[in-house]
């Protein structure tokens, strides 16, 4: 494997004329530049996209909150003080104070619950996406690359799972569990969600396996695993990443929905979905109990959707 130094590529620009008279330096794209991989090109695009900057900023904040909720509030999400704070309304001026968003029907600080609830949502979103991507990519790649019977078999299985309505399926699966920890919810969503990625991966791989560079690798005598890992996977990754980031928001929404319906997470787990669910009882006299966690879900989902959209534009400039 050749040594990689960015410096050589830069100096190549200046010396090109001397060493290779047939190839004038003007030939290569623009300015003195480093080796520009397609990924770094995409990154260059992203950095200049305000949509990306806003959504990435939001996501970073959300990640920080879910990693270190204690840094953002001194109150505990489980401390209930019914006597003093029953359904107390928000105090919009009290930034970051426990009463900023008011209190819920058990006298718990909604601000603290929103902060601590982020972890459940982010964990479900990230966890489901990671697992779904791994499983879907493996299945989709196998189906797309090997074709024939393997493809028929795997594609039919994918179709069967796809035929199950996502939310209804999750509802049925989760009803079967007594103790629904966050992992149970994640696995239930993965069980029903991998098909989307599998389909995308299969389509991408079918295109890629016909490309001449794959044929060239075969002609060199490359092993199947080498072709899959060095040639097929890196090129199939872009569409998979795009679909995965966009789906992430959907999984967060799904968790909230399931928790609201009472089959997802449940007390004492702190989660936005759980809070939305408990907020509906007092909707008339204390709408903030329901609205604030709902808004958090919406903002999070929106952030990931925007993020996914920006990534798509960067990775697939043809769509623009």
């Amino acid at each position: 494997m050749p040594e990689k130094t960015a410096a050589t590529a830069v100096s190549a620009e200046t010396e090109a004329g001397a060493t290779a008279p047939d190839d004038a330096p003007a030939a290569v794209t623009a300015k003195p530049e480093k080796a520009r991989s397609l990924w770094s090109d995409a990154w260059g695009d992203l950095r200049r996209n305000p949509l990306f900057l806003i959504s990435a900023g939001l996501i970073l904040v959300l990640l920080a909150i879910s990693a270190f909720p204690g840094l953002f509030t001194s109150a505990s999400p489980r401390d209930a003080d019914l006597a003093n704070h029953y359904l107390q309304h928000p105090n919009w001026g009290h930034f970051f104070a426990p009463d900023w968003f008011g209190y819920d029907g058990q006298g718990r600080s909604i601000y603290a619950r929103v902060i601590y609830g982020a972890r459940a949502s982010i964990m479900v979103g990230v966890g489901v996406t990671a697992l779904v991507t791994i499983i879907g990519t493996i299945i989709g790649m196998a189906a797309g690359y090997f074709g024939g019977l393997t493809d028929s078999l795997l594609s039919r299985v994918t179709d069967i799972f796809m035929g199950i309505p996502f939310l209804l399926g999750a509802l049925v699966v989760l009803t079967g569990f007594e103790n629904r920890s966050i992992w149970v919810v994640i696995l239930a969503l993965v069980f029903l969600g991998w098909t989307v990625i599998a389909r995308v991966a299969r389509g991408a791989v079918i295109n890629i396996k016909q490309a001449d560079y794959v044929v060239a690798a075969k002609a060199l005598g490359a092993s199947t695993s080498r072709i899959l890992l060095r040639h097929v996977l890196p090129n199939a990754l872009a569409p998979i990443i795009v679909v995965a980031t966009i789906a992430l928001g959907g999984y967060i929404a799904a968790e909230a929905t399931l928790s609201f319906l009472g089959v997802g997470l449940a007390e004492p787990t702190v989660s936005w979905g759980v809070d939305v669910s408990s907020g509906r009882e007092q909707l008339r006299n204390a709408p903030h109990v329901l609205i604030i966690p709902s808004v958090m879900v919406s903002i999070t989902v929106l952030a990931f959707l925007m993020f996914g959209d920006a990534v798509r534009n960067a990775l697939d400039p043809k769509l623009r």
Binding site: D22, A26, A30
Partner: peptide, 14 residues
């Protein structure tokens, strides 16, 4: 006979 070099980059025409 081969014309040496390559067609110019249109962002940087000589």
């Amino acid at each position: 006979y081969a014309i040496k070099g390559l067609p110019p980059n249109l962002t940087r025409i000589p």
